[in-house]
Every structure is written in C-alpha cells, then in structure tokens.
Amino acid sequence: MTVASETTSVLVAIINFGIGNFGSVSNMVRRVGGTPSEVTWPSELKDAQAIILPGVGSFDAGVGTMREHGLERPLSDRILMAGVPVLGICLGMQIMAERSEEGALPGLGWLPGSVIRFRTNQDGETIRVPHIGWNAVTKQQPSPLLEGIEDGSEFYFVHSYHLDNADTSALVGVTSYGLDFPSVIQKGRIFGTQFHPEKSQIWGEKLFRNFLAVAQHA
C-alpha cells in the first residue's frame, strides 16, 4: 500500500451520526494517507483539517443527532468561517442542503437546493426506488475533487432521494437514473457526492486523494 507523502498529515474528522459507515470511510481515509478521527462531540473537532459527513441513515436522524450533540454551530464556524474543507457523502451531502422531503427538520443550508425523492422518469413513468448500483458521472465543470478522474467514470450509488434545484454554478457532476440529478457538488470548499466514493474502487480512492489534497493546500 502506497502512502501519498503530501497528504500524510491531514487529520480528517468523520462525523458520527449514531449510525453509519464510519468503518469504510475511515479505512479509505487511511488508505490515501490521512488520519481519520471519529467525532461525536464538539470538543473532538478542534484539530480537524478536513471534515467528512458520511452517509447512512435518514435525514432527520442525521441532522437531529448533529444538533443534539451541539455540532451544528462549531461545524459551520469551521467550514463557513475558517474554510476547513468538508465532503458530504450521500446523506451527508443531502443534510447540507436547505431541506428534504425525507424529513421535517431543516437542513444545514450550506448548499443551495432541496432534496426530493425519486418518483418518475423524464417520461412520467414510475422508476424503481432506491436507486442502487454503479452509474456514470458526467462532468459539468472542472473541480479539484474530480481532478484526474475520467469523464463518465462509474461510482456506486445507493439512495432514494437526490438533490434538486442545485445552483448551476455549484454543479460539478450529474448522473442519470430515469432523470438527470446532481451527483457531485462544490461550493467553495464545500464538496458533496451523491455516490459512495468509499465504495467506488479506484476512482473513489482517487476522489479521496483529491479531497485530502484540497485540505493540504489550505
């Protein structure tokens, strides 16, 4: 296993929502040379150079746990004020939007747009939900997150909801499942993927490497 020397020192806070894939995400962080640290409470955040919101569970459970643990304010201080880069994965990206059909609680509002459920395709026919499987990501504009990743590379998706009405200036990648939806988002140093890069083999690993490089070049 090769460790990229330029990213060895990045301390990556992985936010614990109570249920989730901390294991897979932290293994991937370690594989690309970062140091993962599980964060449940604000005091554990202090040295984080990069933050990951992982994505398993439901919208209200995720955003609710985050607020109950008093994490919303310290996270927004670091991300919006101090510019610590954040990567939201799947649900972790969705909770950064303004709201979701899946839940009653408001989202964090760091990304424009709301989250809606898959219902019908472009022709109005019902589609199978959840969307599960490997699908291509078509690049919309350059982003450090997709640096060196071929256009049309496939990533692993598993979700019933997707981001809608995303600001086109933030739209980095789209994927088609019945209809086109945003699959990669970037607004400044806020990044989000609807797919699971920690489960997307070589391109997922490359995406993590890119994210840590962003943190490195603060």
């Binding site: 897979s24 991937m28 692993y156 920690e198 489960k199 997307s200 083999q201 997922g204 690993e205």
Partner: peptide, 12 residues
C-alpha cells in the same frame, strides 16, 4: 466483518 472492511472497497 470488521476485518473485511479494512480492505474491501466495494459495497459489502
């Protein structure tokens, strides 16, 4: 299960 998770980079 934890052992596989240390190296598996596909859905499990």
């Amino acid at each position: 299960l934890a052992q596989q998770a240390r190296f598996v980079s596909v859905p499990f």
